[in-house]
C-alpha cells in the first residue's frame, strides 16, 4: 500500500512538472507566440474576451507578472479550457483533442501491448534456444527492423500494400462514407483501416522488445536459482517460464514504460503518413499551421497520457515483484 501511495505522490509531482514545463515552453521561446496566435485568430473575425484570456493563459502575454500568468494558466488547465483553434475555427481546442484522443489511444495502446507480449515471448524463446535459428532470426531481424524510421515503414506499406497492391486503404481511420457509431459494420471498417498503421508500429517496435527480453533472460538464465531449479529436476518449461522469464520480465517492464514515449512519438509520424485522425495527425496539422494553442494542448495531453501509462506499468511492477511490497 505504501508502495502505491509513493507512486501516486510521484505521479502527482511529475504531472505538475509536466504541466509547468508546458507553461514555460512558449514563454522561453523567442518572439511572442501569444501575439502570433491572437493575430491569426483575428483573421477569422473578432476574438471574444474569453478566448483571448485562454490563449494568453496558455502562451503568455508580455503584461502581468509570471506568477499571475502561471495561476491563470493552471486555472485554464483545470477547467480544460485551451481556447479556440484557428485552424479549425471556431472549434475549441479541448473539443478537437477529445475527438482525436480515442483513435490514438486505441491504435497505439493495443498495438504496443500486443508488440510487447509478442516481442517478449520471442525474446524468451531466443534466449532459451540460444545459438539456434530461433535465436539468430529474431535477433538479427529485430536489430534491423528497430532501425527502420517509423514513417519509412509506413510509407513502404502504404505504397506496396495500399497503392500498388490495392489491398488496404491508404488513409484515414474509416471510410469517408461511414459515420462513427457502435455498429459491427463501422468497427470492422475501422479495424480494416487500422491494419496498416498497426503493422507499421508492430514491425518497428517489436525488435526492441525482443532484444531487451533476450538479454535480460540470458542474464537470469545464469542465476543460481535457475541452476538450482534444474538441480531439483523441474520441467524445462517451468524453469524457463516461472524461474527465468518471470524474473527477466521485471527490468523489461521498466524499460517498457520508458520506451512508451518513443512508440508514441513514432506513431505520430505514422499517423501523419496515413492521415489517421489521432493526436499525431492533429499535432502535425497544428504545427504546420502554427496553431500554437492547439499544439500546446496536444503536447500536454500526450505527455499526461504517457505519464499515466507509466504509472500503470509501475503499479503492475509492484504487483509482479514481491520485493516492492515490503
Amino acid at each position: 500500500m505504501r508502495f502505491v501511495l509513493n507512486k501516486v505522490g510521484l505521479l502527482a509531482l511529475t504531472l505538475w512538472a509536466a504541466i509547468t514545463l508546458n507553461f514555460l515552453l512558449p514563454r522561453l521561446m523567442p518572439g511572442s507566440p501569444a501575439d502570433a496566435a491572437l493575430a491569426k485568430l483575428a483573421q477569422n473575425g473578432p476574438v471574444s474576451p474569453a478566448t483571448k484570456a485562454a490563449v494568453e493563459a496558455q502562451l503568455g502575454v508580455p503584461t502581468g507578472s509570471m506568477w499571475e500568468q502561471y495561476l491563470s494558466y493552471l486555472g485554464s488547465v483545470a477547467r480544460f479550457d485551451f481556447g479556440v483553434s484557428y485552424t479549425f475555427f471556431p472549434q475549441s481546442v479541448a473539443g478537437l483533442v477529445t475527438a482525436a484522443l480515442p483513435w490514438t489511444i486505441i491504435l497505439v495502446g493495443l498495438v504496443t501491448i500486443i508488440a510487447f507480449i509478442f516481442g517478449t515471448l520471442l525474446g524468451v524463446l531466443a534466449a532459451w534456444k540460444r545459438g539456434t535459428w530461433l535465436d539468430t532470426l529474431p535477433t538479427v531481424g529485430g536489430t534491423f527492423a528497430s532501425a527502420f524510421p517509423y514513417f519509412w515503414t509506413a510509407l513502404l506499406l502504404v505504397f506496396f500494400l495500399g497503392y500498388v497492391g490495392g489491398w488496404f486503404p491508404t488513409s484515414g481511420a474509416f471510410s469517408r462514407s461511414a459515420t462513427p457509431e457502435f455498429s459491427l459494420a463501422f468497427v470492422g471498417d475501422a479495424l480494416y483501416h487500422a491494419i496498416l498503421p498497426a503493422t507499421t508500429i508492430l514491425i518497428t517496435s517489436l525488435g526492441g522488445w525482443i532484444l531487451g527480453m533476450r538479454s535480460t533472460m540470458i542474464n537470469t538464465l545464469g542465476e543460481d536459482y535457475v541452476t538450482f531449479a534444474e538441480a531439483n529436476g523441474l520441467r524445462p518449461r517451468t524453469v524457463a517460464l516461472r524461474y527465468a522469464a518471470r524474473n527477466a520480465i521485471l527490468p523489461n517492464l521498466t524499460s517498457f514504460g520508458l520506451a512508451l514515449g518513443a512508440v508514441v512519438g513514432g506513431s505520430l509520424l505514422v499517423e501523419r503518413v496515413f492521415a489517421y485522425p489521432g493526436v499525431g495527425y492533429l499535432l502535425y496539422t497544428a504545427v504546420t499551421n502554427q496553431d500554437y494553442p492547439l499544439m500546446q494542448a496536444l503536447f500536454l495531453i500526450i505527455t499526461i497520457s504517457v505519464l499515466l501509462a507509466n504509472f500503470i506499468v509501475d503499479i503492475l511492477y509492484g504487483i509482479l515483484d514481491p520485493r516492492t511490497r515490503r
Binding site: D224, A231, T238
Partner: peptide, 29 residues
C-alpha cells in the same frame, strides 16, 4: 542425486514464495 549450491542467498527464485518452491518440485516429479 541432489545438490545444495554455495550461495544459498541466490539459489531461490526471488519472486516465488517458499511454498511454491516446494510445490514446483512436487509437481515436476
Amino acid at each position: 542425486f541432489a545438490m545444495v549450491l554455495q550461495s544459498g542467498m541466490n539459489a531461490l527464485n526471488p519472486v516465488r514464495s517458499i511454498r511454491n518452491h516446494f510445490f514446483d518440485i512436487f509437481e515436476a516429479h
